[in-house]
């Protein structure tokens, strides 16, 4: 693999994999702060960050912008590229949990807020520390449960 930009980098189909890892560490810290302080506006902001990453793509995600402006120039150019689709999927999973968590904390259902935030934190931490994509692991399982649900509903 060459160190240059891949042919399709301009089309944002692939990104520097260290970007999402950096974003995952930031997310871990933010969600940790939310768990301890139960301050829902911070979680709301994180929900918005997830939403941008999931729906607009990692090219627009605030942590990704931070990575490209501040961190990437100090690192050696990457020789590896990662597809955008898995990253967007992970952000979507994070968005769902963070949204539920925000509703929980904001409406005073602290247990709901804590459980949802902890789930998002677990996924972010596994991604940051181990490069493990919980969404990838759980995708087939979730699909199967969805199918099962669909079948029993008929």
């Amino acid at each position: 693999m060459t160190t240059g930009e891949p042919a399709n980098a301009s089309a944002s189909h692939s990104i520097d994999p260290r970007g999402p890892r950096f974003a995952a560490w930031l997310t871990t810290v933010v969600l940790g702060v939310v768990l301890v302080t139960e301050w829902w506006p911070v979680l709301l902001a994180q929900t918005a960050v997830f939403a941008i990453g999931a729906f607009a793509g990692p090219g627009f995600a605030p942590y990704g912008v931070l990575y490209r402006r501040l961190v990437a120039p100090r690192l050696r150019p990457t020789s590896e590229w990662e597809e955008v689709a898995p990253v967007r999927f992970a952000q979507l999973v994070g968005f769902v949990f963070a949204a539920v968590g925000t509703v929980g904390f904001a409406t005073g259902v602290v247990a709901l807020g804590a459980v949802a935030t902890a789930a998002a934190l677990l996924a972010a931490f596994l991604n940051a520390a181990f490069g493990l994509c919980l969404g990838c692991e759980a995708y087939l399982l979730v699909r199967r449960l969805g199918q099962f649900g669909g079948r029993t509903a008929h």
């Binding site: 301890v36 677990l122 520390a129």
Partner: peptide, 18 residues
């Protein structure tokens, strides 16, 4: 206080899983 325990538990669980 509970938040700290949830945080610690989640990180410990994550470490184990990872």
């Amino acid at each position: 206080m509970v938040g700290w325990w949830v945080l610690l538990g989640t990180l410990a669980g994550g470490l184990l899983l990872g």
